[in-house]
Design a protein around this nucleic acid. Sequence first.
RNA 1: GCCGGGGUGGCGGAAUCGGCAGACGCACGGGACUUAAAAUCCCGGGUCCUGAAAGGGGCGUGUGGGUUCAAGUCCCACCCUCGGCACCA
Length: 879
Amino acid sequence: MNYQETEKKWQKVWEEKKIFSTPSNPKKKYYVLEMFAYPSGDIHIGHFRNYTIGDAVARFKKKQGYDILHPFGWDAFGLPAEEAAIKRKIHPREWTLNNISVSRSTLKQVGISYDWDREIITCLPDYYHWNQWIFLKMFEKGLAYQAKSLVNWCPGCKTVLANEQVQEGSCWRCHEQVSKKELLQWFLKITDYAERLLNDLDKPLKWKETIRQPDGSDKPMEKPIEWPEHVKTMQKNWIGRSEGGKIIFKLDTDETEPVTELPVFTTRPDTLFGVTFISIAPEHPLTQRLIKKQPQEKEVLDFIKKTVLQSEMTRTAAGEKNGIFTGRYALHPFTGEKIPIWIADYVLAGYGTGIVMGVPAHDQRDFLFAKKYGLTIKIVILPQNQTSEPLTQAYEEPGIMVNSGEFSGLESERGKKKIIEKLKEKNLGDFEIKYKLRDWLISRQRYWGTPIPIIHCPSCGTVPVPESELPVKLPDNIQDFIPKGRSPLEDVKEFFITACPKCGKQANRDPDTMDTFVDSSWYFLRYVDSKNEKLPFDPEKANQWMPVDQYIGGLEHATGHLLYCRFITKVLHDLGYVNVEEPAFRLFNHGMVLDKQGEVMSKSKGNVVSPAYLMEKFGVDASRIAMFFAAPAEKELLWNEEGVGGAVRFLNRIERYAENALSDSPQIAIPVTSSNTLKPSPQQVKVMEGTAIDPPAADSSVHDSPVLTIKLHATIKKVSDDLERFSFHTAIAALMELLNLMEEETKQGGVPLSQAKHCLEIFTHLLSPFAPHFSEEIWEKLGKPPSLFESPWPTPDEKALLSTQPITADQIRSALKGEIELVVQINGKVKEHLTAPMNLTEEEIKTKTLELPKIKAQIDGKEIKKMIVIPKKLINIVV
RNA sequence: GCCGGGGUGGCGGAAUCGGCAGACGCACGGGACUUAAAAUCCCGGGUCCUGAAAGGGGCGUGUGGGUUCAAGUCCCACCCUCGGCACCA
């Protein structure tokens, strides 16, 4: 088969017949979505793997009768476009759109079943218009706000970063060490949704009725999202909920100072009586006031200066903790005792209140700090039935409270509650829940992004751009993309200087652009109505198609994109634009593609494999089969070209079988020399012992091979189940087994032409999600009308299925004789096999087993303690 | 340090509910066909011991223990490895 011709031929048919167009009124919908692509050059083999998985799912579901939505688009804003612009002196738009057209053409050539009519490109105004719209809706609700705070600053990219974009203290993109800066920035209030984002990971949610039940029916259902457990766990850790309490320590003051409160957050209120110091983050605004006019003022200021300048990495690296005494004291809320206030570098300004109560006996960090500076260590929790002994490290487990006034003797878990309750009465504390999750910082001081639709007016303040004036277009005429630490848009006067929508006086636009994760946080909703000019999408259409039934992408987005898109979906839900509360019902994470040595593919290493190259060399279908077969889809794949040979051979064998089965005078099999030349030479037309498959018998007196029939139905079941659970490699292995048996049986002369054809037909259906072009071609050769993808997926005949699965040909043969092969073990070790009629009683089986010569010999003289008979499986003799 | 995944032939991997470990394939070795090569087809293979051979026996799923008639699968402890988080009070 000439694969290149075949590929083109069927891609054209699919397009002409609009096979993959989305139906407008879905009855039984299925939304398959792969994460869209960032267009940097052409797509690579990693993308190819991702999209091929989605393609197989979409084709399988289509054949099962679902109305499919399977769209694609481009995550087109972002820094690399600017970098390219600086390096090559071309406009980011040009670079981006060029890459899109190259990548799109590759994707079309590999025949992924997208509905290209719904394609979206986020850097075009008809898309980012709606980023701005969503931003304004959130601004109205108080979910978008501007605040001055300590934010992550990347000196490499010269812009701020969201928490999710800082990895091990470095920038996710350029890997420079991230520092902290205090800046006025825009945030989205994801923390308001922390509790829901956490709960909805496990809470049963109502889904529309078209999601299929395991039993095949289509009932409404209530169940939690089906996401991999590790993704859920990562999100839970990221959200980081902790229950505890807020406790107020009052500053020890004289009359000259106002009453000052030092609130702390703790998860261990039960250790309150063990507090021997208070520590405050160096960045905390209160510190400056505390130390004013203290004798050690200068030293403390020096310490703060030094610490704040250090990068987060060095500060948090080792266990070493540094601090300095402020000279001030706080008062214990129960005892009134004076407690020294320290400034400590291990206290984070951004979490809790930025002030911590130091309990060295029961917190390892406080312990190390106290040891270093010679502070008191006071034990207030003891393990059950133990007496107090000097500690070598903090005791952090629960226990019995001691030295805790009226609370002594209480079990610590109960004590937590009691202490807070008492403090609440005294107005010195309350129960509180804190999250590690911070609000989502979305402003970026860069050009290539969505302009923030806000105008800053000297008299009216922060004014949103009216909806009717959207989109605020990104200006084209920009000279300089080199980052300077403030947005380049500030230098584009026509853009930056504008009139205030309220008072009409001269005002400035907000010069920052949005984080590109805003674009990807709702794109799946745009696909349902990608050309809408009035709204980001029609709610009715969204309710028809949402949620995404199957989302497919890499694990790198577990705490970034996958959290943001859940957040924005909930916001849009609350605003009444969509019914679902979660964007995707099922999530699948595919593994990465690495090179032979297990190294990540990258341009700089020069080890990138392009789909275009594979297409050229092996054809799309053989490449797909090789990729599916090489490793489970969720695991990483070490790409090795040698594997493709096996895939090519597999397809050739199918083709050869088809040629034999379908030839007018099926007398012989013809060895195929290469996939392109199928011309039998006279020498080749010679039956050679062992060289070829004998033809399927045309003679109708030959009866169907029952072994093959049973295997065929077992394979239908196996492949269907495997597709459902994303086990593509075992599905292909099952097809290989079937082909092996088809050949073997045919060779024995036991397969009539009609059965050979029937097998091939079913085979073609089962192969089609993996090798779509090839399957269409065989389908056509079988005399079937195109397209194979309009023809339904086969279902196994239950009567032809054996109860035991999986089954080998030999097992089927025994079964056909009404016999079953049982394993005979002695003390759990396999010694013999017993072939016996299927319906023997346990007693008969026992007798037969003991008659086996080998078994007789082995148990000779030993006492049989017990015999265990597992019906249809095995006999174990215990001696 | 904490959380999660994983460890099975030369390699990728299979074993879906505790019941024949190594399906399927790659690479390899032998053979057939060929002037030759390629292609194709056939055969082989966990490992050790024993035997001239047919055969027979033992050991085998990271390590050590346990539960069970039976463990790759369940439990406990540990080692290695990959990924995430990392002073979150």
